[in-house]
Nucleic acid binder design. Structure first.
Lengths: 217, 217
DNA sequence: GCAGTCCTCGACACCCTGTTGACTCGTTCG
DNA sequence: CGAACGAGTCAACAGGGTGTCGAGGACTGC
C-alpha cells in the first residue's frame, strides 16, 4: 500500500513526492520485517514477503539491503543499543543492597528483551544460520558476562560473597541460564517458567550461586 | 564409491550381492549424515550430499527417508535412548551423598551429549527449523526436569534441602542452564566455560541453588 | 515364465536467492 | 534549456535447493 504516503508533504504544504524516497522504503522494509516476525519465524519469511510488504519488487529490496539477514541485523542493532544501555545503568547505579543490585540487573535484561519479544526469538533462531547474527549475540553476551564477573569480584572483595568457583565461569553459566530460560519463556516452546515468576526464579539462583552460604537481605 | 561392497559375501563365501539391499542403503545414509555433520552444519548439507555419500541418487534417498530432518530424527532417536538410560541410572542408583548424586546426574548428561557432539550441535540448530526436532528435545528436557524436580522434592522432604523456590521452576531453570552451557562448550561459539571445568561449575550452581544455606559434603 | 515387490533414477514442477541491464525520473550544471 | 548524472526500479535470468511422478530394472515366489 504505497498510496498512503502521497498526501504527506515532505517540507511544506501540498502533495509533492509521488515517489516515496529511499529512507521511506528502507523504513518500510524494517517495519514490515518487524510485523511479519511477530506472525511467523524468520525462516518462513522470504525476501519477496519483505519486498511486497514494503510495496516494492524483490530486486529493489536488494537495493536497500544485501540480504534478509542484513534486515534482521539492522533491527537488532537498535535492541543491542537498548540492552547495553539498560545493562550499564543497572550495573552502574548504586544499589540499596546486594539483592536489589542483582534484581535490577536481571530485571533490565528481562525488560529489554521482553519489549522486543519477536525480535528476540528471531535472534536466537538466526544465530544458527548467520555468522554475523551469532557474532552480535556473542558480543552482547560477553559484555553482560564482564559486568557480572566484575560485580561478583567486587562482592567478594568487600567480603560479602565467599570465594568459590571462578567468577567468570559463574557469570558465563548464570548468564547462559538467563538467556535460555528467557528464550523458552518468550518463545513458548517446550517447558518454561511462567513469565510472572521468571525474574524471581533467576534471581534466586544467582543469589545462591554468588553468595553461597550467606545470602544477604 | 559403491564398488567396494561387491566382494563382501553376505552369508558364505564368494561375491553375491552385487546390489546392496535396503537396510544397507539406509545405514549408509545415516552414517553419511553423521560423517558430514562432523564437518559442517546441517544447513550446509543438502539431500543430494547425503544421497551421493550413500552412493544413490536424490530421488532414491526419498525412498528411504521423507526428508533431511527425518534422517536427523532417526539419528537422534538413538541418542535419546542413551540419554534417557543414562539419566535413569544416574537418578536411580543410590548415591553415597547428596553432592555425589547430583554429580552423577550432571555427569551423565555431559557424557552422553559429549559422546555425540556433532549431533548435539545439529540438534540444537534444527530445533529452530523443525517442529519434530523441537518436540523431541522438549520431551527429553521434560523428563530431565521431572527427575530433577522429584529429586529436589525428596531432598526437601528428608530435610536436607530448605524450601524455597518451587522445585519445578528450579529444575527448569537449572536444566536450561545445563543445556545452554554445554551447547556453548561443545559448539565453541561464543563465550563458554572450559570443557574441563564445565561439570564442576554446573554442579556448584546446582548445589547452591538446591541446598541454599546448608551445602552438604 | 509370470506376478508382485522392492528398488532406482531421469525429468519435472516449484520455490527461493541474488544479479544484470535497461529504463524512469528528478536534479544539477554548463 | 537540454545534456549528463545519480538514485531508484524491475523483468528476466542464472543457479541451487526441495519433493514428486512415472517408467523402468531386478530379484522372489509360485
Amino acid at each position: 500500500m504505497p498510496a498512503a504516503a502521497d498526501e504527506l508533504p515532505s517540507t511544506g504544504r501540498g502533495r509533492r513526492p509521488p515517489r516515496p524516497s529511499g529512507d521511506d522504503r528502507e523504513l518500510a522494509i524494517l517495519t514490515t520485517a518487524e510485523r511479519l516476525l511477530a506472525e511467523r519465524p524468520l525462516g518462513a519469511i522470504s525476501v519477496d514477503d519483505l519486498a511486497r510488504g514494503a510495496g516494492i519488487s524483490r530486486p529493489t529490496f536488494y537495493f536497500y539491503f544485501s540480504s534478509k539477514d542484513a534486515v534482521l541485523l539492522s533491527l537488532l542493532d537498535r535492541v543491542v543499543e537498548e540492552a547495553d544501555t539498560a545493562m550499564r545503568e543497572a550495573f552502574g547505579s548504586p544499589a540499596t543492597g546486594a539483592r536489589d543490585g542483582w534484581a535490577r540487573a536481571i530485571g533490565a535484561y528481562y525488560d529489554t528483551f521482553r519489549a522486543h519479544r519477536p525480535l528476540t526469538v528471531a535472534w536466537a533462531q538466526a544465530r544458527s544460520t548467520s555468522d554475523e547474527v551469532r557474532g552480535l549475540w556473542s558480543a552482547v553476551f560477553e559484555r553482560w558476562v564482564q559486568q557480572s564477573t566484575a560485580a561478583i569480584d567486587a562482592e567478594r572483595a568487600r567480603g560479602a560473597a565467599p570465594a568459590g568457583l571462578p567468577a567468570r565461569d559463574l557469570a558465563v553459566a548464570l548468564t547462559s541460564m538467563n538467556e535460555r530460560v528467557l528464550y523458552a519463556t518468550f518463545s513458548g516452546d517446550g517447558p518454561a517458567v511462567a513469565e510472572a515468576d521468571v525474574v524471581e526464579v533467576l534471581l534466586g539462583i544467582w543469589l545462591s550461586a554468588v553468595y553461597g552460604a550467606a545470602i544477604p537481605d
